[in-house]
């Protein structure tokens, strides 16, 4: 239990850190030239955008205060931005107060998400977002 918690926290923290580095790189180059590096495996291989393509651009426009454009680019940007804001604070809070509230929350969310009715709805939302992404030509 304890080991699993630490593993999850390390993973989340690393992911958030990488996300912030990536965000900083993108914010600092977004104004200068329009050649943002693309990392998406699917898009590089097939030229078709994946459901989460455009998330970086969405988060960058969120940073610039362009909430409507972020929603238009990719609604996933809001979720990612929320996780990136909350996760590090929550992890530090947990480590200082020696609790595992984030781990318990994570396990609850995992159980919550796999309920069939909700899962089907979410899968449809992701598919709809994918179709929207393709039609937008991100």
């Amino acid at each position: 239990m304890h080991q699993k918690r630490n593993k999850l926290y390390l993973l989340l923290f690393t992911a958030c850190f990488a996300g912030y580095v990536w965000l900083f790189y993108n914010v600092s180059t977004s104004g200068t030239e329009k050649s943002s590096m693309e990392v998406c495996l699917i898009k590089n291989a097939t030229n078709i955008p994946c459901p989460s393509c455009g998330t970086t651009r969405a988060v960058v426009s969120l940073v610039n205060g362009d909430f409507f454009e972020a929603l238009f680019l990719n609604p996933f940007g809001y979720i990612v931005a929320l996780i990136m804001l909350l996760a590090p604070i929550w992890i530090v809070f947990d480590l200082i107060s020696k609790k595992n509230s984030l781990f318990i929350f994570y396990q609850k969310i995992e159980k919550f998400l796999v309920r069939p009715k909700l899962a089907i709805l979410l899968i449809f939302l992701v598919l709809a977002n994918w179709i929207w992404n393709i039609s937008k030509g991100l």
Binding site: V39, L41, C50, P51
Partner: peptide, 19 residues
């Protein structure tokens, strides 16, 4: 691993590295 699955989905497979 639903939680990690969501994480992977949201980040284009973890910037392709995780994939």
């Amino acid at each position: 691993d639903t939680g990690l699955g969501v994480g992977k989905l949201l980040t284009c497979g973890g910037f392709a590295i995780w994939t």
